[in-house]
């Protein structure tokens, strides 16, 4: 078996919907990765702290509240400030198409919305050079 990635699945901000995040966490575990789930309502600062302490290579952010435009770039910025610029960040949830270019620019590597299959995500992870 290949070395598993350590992946933090996080719910930033005031958003109580974590069905999607839990499904993703489970799918990535079944794909052989070590998934750390943060639980609900974490601040960007907490998420960066968790990524650091857990020595994660990947962080997945889930948001269904509409605040992704602020929260996702904030996490990326704080990761860089903490010296974790090599951590790959992907997003998921309800992220309208028109918001995506700005998120990619801020450092989000991929965005997986509703309808994404777990194999698409796993393929994305398998192709990472981390």
């Amino acid at each position: 078996m290949p070395t598993p990635l350590r992946i933090v699945i996080a719910k930033p901000g005031l958003d109580g919907h974590d069905r999607g995040a839990k499904v993703v966490a489970r799918a990535l575990r079944d794909a052989g990765h070590e998934v750390i789930y943060t639980g609900l309502r974490r601040t960007p600062e907490q998420i960066v702290r968790i990524a650091m302490d857990e020595d994660a290579q990947v962080v997945g952010l889930s948001s269904l509240s509409g605040a992704h435009g602020f929260l996702f770039p904030k996490v990326c910025e704080l990761l860089r400030k903490a010296g974790l610029e090599d951590v790959v960040v992907f997003g998921g949830g309800i992220i309208p198409e028109r918001d995506r270019p700005a998120l990619y620019k801020s450092g989000i590597s991929a965005i997986f919305g509703p309808g994404t299959t777990s194999s698409e995500m796993i393929e994305f992870l398998n192709n990472l050079e981390v």
């Binding site: 598993p4 990765h33 070590e34 750390i36």
Partner: peptide, 30 residues
Amino acid sequence: SGGALLGDRMRMSSVDAGENVFFRSIATRN
């Protein structure tokens, strides 16, 4: 699968802030 779902820290509100606490999830496979 060799994978693991590590969710212990979601139940601990004390561990995600402050310089004096460090939390690490460990899967036995490592």
